[in-house]
Design a protein around this nucleic acid. Structure first.
Lengths: 203, 203, 203, 203
DNA sequence: AATGAATGAGGATTCATTCAT
DNA sequence: AATGAATGAATCCTCATTCAT
C-alpha cells in the first residue's frame, strides 16, 4: 500500500465537470435524506434528483452510508463556521453562550434537511453523531471554563454544564426541524436559557 | 410486560396460551429492536428469539411497524405509571419536578432497549414519538402551573418551561441509552436541573 | 380399503347441528368466492362470515378447492332443476329453447355470486367447468334432435348448434353477472335468439 | 412481440440491449401465464425462462399484474391489426362479419397462450378484459350499422347484435383455447354464424 | 363438534451495488 | 466521466392447513 492509496481519495473528482456532478449529488442527497429519511430514500431518488444516471453515484461515493456521513460532517463544519462568525466581537461570555445557542438554532432552521440528517445519524452512523455533538460541547465547555476562571459565572463542572447546553440544542433543533412549530422554538430557547442563565449568575 | 395495557385490535389472543405467546413476542421484539434498531432487525430474529414460527408473529401483529408502535405506547404508559408512583406523597412541587426527572431517567435506564425504541420512533413512526413526549410535557406543565399559582415559583410560560424540561429528559435519556456513559448521566441531570431550579426560585 | 372408506364421506356432518354448520359455511363460501373471487378470498373470510372458528372449516371440507367444486356442482344441479320446472308443459320445442335460455339467465341473475364461481372455475377447476356446461349442451342437443326429427326445425349438426346456444348462455351470463348492465341482458338474449330462431325455422 | 406498441411507463428501456431484455421477458411471461395461469405462475418462472435474474423483471415492469395487463392490451392491438388486414378489400359487409369472426378465431388459435390470458383477465384485471371486448364490439357494431343503413341486412339494434357476435367470439375462443377440441371450433363458428346470418338477411 | 393457536413453505418486491460500454 | 442494465440476496408478509384441546 503506497502513500497514494492512503492520502488520495480515488472517488474525488479530477475535473471541473466531475466536481460539479459530485456537488449536484451531495445537494440531491441532502434534500432526499432530509425530506424522507435515510431508509426511505433510495440511491435512485438521489440520482434522479441530480439528473444523473444511477451508476454515476458510485463514481463519487463508496456507498449510501458514506454520503450520509459526509453530510453529517459537512453540517458540523458549516454550523461551527456560522456560529464562529456570529460570535466575532462578542466579549461577554454569557452573552456568547446565548448567542451561540441562537446561532445554532438559526442554522439548523436554515438547513432543516441537513439537521434532520444529523439527528437520524444517531441511528445510522452513531459515531458521526457523537463526533458532531462532541465538537459543540467542547466549544461550550471551553467558553464556560474561561468564564469560570474569570469569575464571571459561578463555579461548577463545566463539562457537565456544557452537555446540559447541548441537551437544549438537541432538543430545540429536533423540535424545530421535526415538529415544525416554528414560532415557539426561539421562545422555548430563550425561556430555557434565561432560567439557566439566572442560575449561572454570581449569587 | 403484559399486552392488556396495549390498544386493542382484532389480533388479540383469546386464550391464555395465546396471551403468553404474544407476551413472548413483545418481549423478543423489544430486545431485538432495542439492541439493533428497527431497520437492522428482522421479523425472523424476533420469532426466533421468541421460539415460535415466523407466521406466529402475524397472528398477533399486523406488521413490523405495528409492534414497534405498540412498544412505544407501552413505554409511555409504564413510564408514567412508574413516575406517578415515585411521586406519591411528594408535596413540594419543585422537588416533584426533580424527582420526576430522576424517575424518568431511572426508568429509561432500566428499560434501555425500550427507550431506544422511543427515540428511534422519531424516524420510524413520528406521531407515536410526538404522543409520547407530549404526554410528559402535559404532566410537567400542569405541575408548573400549580406551583406558579401557589406562588412557589416565578411566573412564566409554563407550557414553554415544560418543553424545556422535556428537552433535558430527551437529551439525558439519549445520552444514557445511546452513549452508555452511565456514570455521568445523573450528574448532568442534577447539574442542569439545579441551574434551572435556581432560576425558578422566587427572586 | 373397505366399502366405508369409499362410500362414506367422513367430512359429512353426523348431527343436525353439524349439518347447520356446514350449510352456513357453504353459504358463506358462495358469498365470499362470488364477491371477491377464488384467489382473493381466504378461508378466514369464509369462517368469519359463517361465525365459526377457522378450524371448523376443515371439519367439513378437505380443502379450499373442494368447497369451490362443490359449489360449481351445486349450481349445475339447481340450475337444471330450475329450468326443468320452467319448461314443464311447454310443447313447442323452439319455444322451449328460448324459454330455457331465459330461465338460465334468470337463474344466473338470481344467483350472481354462484354463477361467477362457475365462470371462474374455468381457471381453478377446469373439469368442473366442463362438466357444468356439458350437461346443458346435452339437454339443448337432445331438444334440437327431437325438433329436427319431427321436422320442426331445419336440419343441421345438433351437437354443434347446441354448443352455439351454450356460447350465448355463457356470454350472456358473464355479461349480466360481471358487467352488471342488467337492463339489457334480456334484450341481448332475445335479439340474439331471434336471429338464431329465424335461422332454425324451416325455410 | 415488440414493446413499443405497449403503453409507455418510466420503466421503458433506453438501449437496444434493454429492449431485447424486455421483449424476452414479455415473451416468457406470455408463455408462463398462458401455460399455467396467472396465480400458478411465479415471477421466478418468468425470469428463469427469460434467462435473467429475478430483479431484472422489476427493471421493466412494476408488478406481476402490470405485465399481465400489458399482455392483454397487446393482444387487443395485434388481434385488431390482424383482422383489419384480413378484411382489406372485402366489400360485402355480411361476409366481413363472418371473415372477421374467423380471423378472430385464427388469431386466438395462433396465440393460444395470449388468448388464455385475455380470458383470465376477467378474474385478474377485469377492466382490461372489458376494454378488450368493447373494442371489438365497437367494430362489429359499426359494420352492422353500415350494413343496415345500406339496406344490406334487416334493421335491428346494432349494439345488441354486435354483443351477440362478441358472445360467439368469447365462447369460441374459450372453447378452442381451453378445451382444445380444435377440429370443431370452426365448425361451431360457421354453424352458429350461418344461423345468425339467415336472421340478418333481408326478409 | 368446535375452537383458535401455530405452522412454514412460499412468493412478490426491494434496492444497494457491480458491470460492461 | 458517465451511463443504465443487470444482479440476487434480503425481507416482509400470506394463508392454506394441521394440531392440541
Amino acid at each position: 500500500m503506497n502513500q497514494d492509496s492512503i492520502s488520495v481519495n480515488d472517488k474525488n473528482p479530477k475535473t471541473a465537470r466531475g466536481a460539479k456532478t459530485k456537488a449536484k449529488l451531495l445537494e440531491a442527497a441532502s434534500l432526499e435524506f432530509g425530506a424522507r429519511g435515510y431508509h426511505e430514500c433510495m440511491i435512485a431518488d438521489i440520482t434522479k434528483r441530480a439528473n444523473v444516471a444511477m451508476g454515476t453515484f458510485y463514481v463519487y461515493f463508496e456507498s449510501k452510508e458514506v454520503v450520509f456521513r459526509e453530510l453529517v460532517q459537512y453540517m458540523g463544519q458549516t454550523t461551527r463556521a456560522y456560529i464562529s462568525k456570529k460570535l466575532e466581537g462578542v466579549s461577554d461570555r454569557l452573552e456568547a453562550e446565548k448567542k451561540g445557542l441562537h446561532a445554532f438554532i438559526e442554522f439548523a432552521r436554515a438547513n432543516k434537511d441537513l439537521y434532520r440528517i444529523v439527528m437520524e445519524s444517531q441511528f445510522v452512523a452513531e459515531d458521526a453523531y457523537r463526533d458532531y455533538y462532541t465538537s459543540f460541547q467542547k466549544a461550550y465547555a471551553e467558553n464556560l471554563r474561561n468564564a469560570s476562571s474569570k469569575g464571571e459565572i459561578r463555579n461548577g463542572d463545566d463539562e457537565v454544564r456544557a452537555w446540559g447546553l447541548i441537551g437544549l440544542s438537541v432538543f430545540l433543533g429536533m423540535r424545530y426541524c421535526i415538529w415544525d412549530d416554528s414560532k415557539k422554538v426561539e421562545d422555548v430557547a430563550d425561556a430555557a436559557f434565561d432560567l439557566i442563565k439566572n442560575g449561572l449568575k454570581m449569587g
